[in-house]
Amino acid sequence: MLVLGHRTSEWCGVAPALEEDIALANIALDLIGQAKLWLEYAGEVEDAERTANTLAFRRDFYDFRNLLMLELPNEDYARTIIRHFLFDAFQVPWLEALAASSDETISSIGQKTVKEANYHLERSQDTVVALGDGTEESNTRMQKALHDLWPYAGEMFQDDEIDRMMQGESIAPLPSSMKKAWELRVERVFNDAFLILPDSDFSHSGGRQGIRHTEHLGHMLASMQFLQRAYPGASW
């Protein structure tokens, strides 16, 4: 969420239209705000005196646990929109499920953030259809973006040890249990958008476990973390 939030913030000032620019900046702020809630709680659970700020700005890339899809560069507006849609379509039912978590803090973060996620999804879904069913160029760009990102989407639904543990304690459902509904939604929306789903089940993996990251994350962190690295502890 932090990673996607930062990527989204990179559009600030350079998005294709003023209205889109402000909308994306709002979404970036939502995501960074959500990340703050999760990281604060992670720091609390870890109990090693690491704050949300330390976790965000003082970890190196190999300590990051995020979906590889979210760290890829924005490239163009098509890729940004496709990425948001693929992610939002997972995020909404996921946060709804977390809202029913046996863990009180997770449940309250889920309830709070799902409202934002719903709006993000509404927006990204509409934009996918608008650009897919737009001009020849917008359709070509969207199709290419979908083709580029598809091999990263499957990582959202890969269960690992921690997922199984959390499911066992009714903290969170298995990510794989979200896949069917997600597929139905994206198929329907891409159909409306005249975009063709790539015919491949292959998926990159390992970002959520920190086993691997793409070459892009380190570069992103270099600019995101610059201030806290150069002036540790700096505050407003």
């Binding site: 209205e19 909308a23 509404e122 608008a130």
Partner: peptide, 20 residues
């Protein structure tokens, strides 16, 4: 005022530009 493709898009943009 703002630019948008249709009324629904205009409401979304207005939400982001004027009610944040």
């Amino acid at each position: 005022s703002l630019h948008a493709v249709d009324a629904e898009h205009a409401i979304k943009n207005a939400r982001d530009v004027y009610t944040r």
